[in-house]
Amino acid sequence: MHRELLSGVRTGAVGSVHSWELVTAVDGPGTRLTVFLAGCPLRCLYCHNPDTMRMRDGQRVEVTEVLRRLHRYLPVFRAAGGGLTVSGGEPLMQPAFLARLLRGARELGVHTAVDTSGFLGANASDALLDDVDLVLLDVKSGDDATSRHVTGRDLQPTLDFGRRLSERGTEIWVRFVLVPGLTDAVDDVARVADHVAAMTSVSRVEVLPFHQMGREKWERLGMDYALTGTSPPDAALLARARAQFAARGLTVY
């Protein structure tokens, strides 16, 4: 079954899917069907969905099944200005399946968004990106050293992907998670803001406060959670970080 899944993932006929949900004003504009794919190359210390890290832990789902569900919600999308968001995990771990989902959504006239760290941006072909209306780009930090500490991976691929999207004119919403003692240093936030300001197609920045909602999942999976003693940022810290982005002329939430 595992070999069958991998074969299907390579062709895009099937994908490893963790879950899906209908949400409003969370993963893009309007009411959206958000499909969470399984598998991620990053190991973010604050990940609130550690159960999506391994592709083999997902469900084998045919692309036609997701598109049938998408078709069912067409009246909702049209009424609420919503669409499809593919998240994870990391959707670009399954580029063929992602491409088929996006193409099918585009053929239905549905707005499309991809929620990604951009680390695997090289996996996204130009044809795939032609079917993307919006990228929710998770920028984890402002430099490679902090990025490696927070995620286990380098930052540069994310920046390269953001530059590529900007050159194409693809709309970007940047997401940055503010973690006290980890990603909140004034200089690091300033570097993130500078990187984002250089991405000319960014239309908004979401500074997301760290929370402990994923802690129970880590413990249930028997994984070591490094941020047990970390508190969410207070209002003053959030305001300072948001002001740093706004000072670069960015629209901040």
Score class of each variant (00 low, 15 high):
Ala113Asp: 08
Leu102Lys: 03
Gln94Leu: 08
Ser125Cys: 09
Gly109Thr: 10
Arg103Asp: 14
Lys140Met: 08
Leu129Gln: 01
Leu101Trp: 05
Ala105Ile: 11
Leu108Asp: 07
Ala145Gln: 14
Phe119Trp: 14
Leu92Phe: 11
Leu128Gly: 00
Leu92Glu: 02
Asp126Arg: 10
Asp131Leu: 05
Val114Thr: 06
His111Met: 14
Asp131Phe: 02
Leu98Asp: 07
Gly121Cys: 05
Arg103Met: 04
Ser141Ala: 15
Asp143Glu: 14
Ala145Leu: 13
Gly118Ala: 08
Gly109Ile: 11
Val110Gln: 01
Pro95Val: 08
Arg103Leu: 11
Ala122Tyr: 11
Ser141Phe: 03
Asp130Ser: 12
Phe97Pro: 00
Val110Thr: 06
Val139Gln: 01
Ala127Glu: 15
Asp130Leu: 04
Ala124Pro: 08
Leu137Gln: 06
Asp126Ser: 09
Pro95Ala: 05
Thr116Ile: 10
Leu108Tyr: 11
Leu92Thr: 03
Gln94Ser: 10
Leu108Ala: 11
Arg100Lys: 15
Val132Tyr: 00
Asp130Asn: 09
Ser141Tyr: 04
Ala145Trp: 13
Asp138Leu: 06
Ala96Met: 10
Asp115Tyr: 08
Val110Phe: 07
Gly142Arg: 07
Leu101Arg: 01
Leu134Met: 05
Ala96Phe: 14
Gly121Leu: 09
Val135Gln: 00
Gly109Tyr: 08
Pro95Gly: 06
Leu102Tyr: 05
Val132Asp: 00
Leu129Ala: 04
Arg100Phe: 05
Gly118Lys: 04
Lys140Thr: 02
Ser125Pro: 06
Asp126Ala: 13
Asp133Asn: 13
Asp131Gln: 09
Ala145Pro: 13
Ala113Arg: 00
Asp131Met: 09
His111Leu: 12
Arg103Tyr: 12
Ser125His: 06
Met93Trp: 10
Ala105Glu: 07
Thr112Lys: 01
Leu128Val: 03
Arg100Gly: 07
Leu129Arg: 00
Gly109His: 10
Ala145Val: 15
Asp115Leu: 13
Leu102Glu: 00
Ala96Thr: 11
Ala113Ser: 12
Thr112Ile: 12
Asp144Trp: 13
Pro91Trp: 12
Leu98Pro: 03
Glu107Leu: 14
Gly118Tyr: 08
Leu92Asn: 04
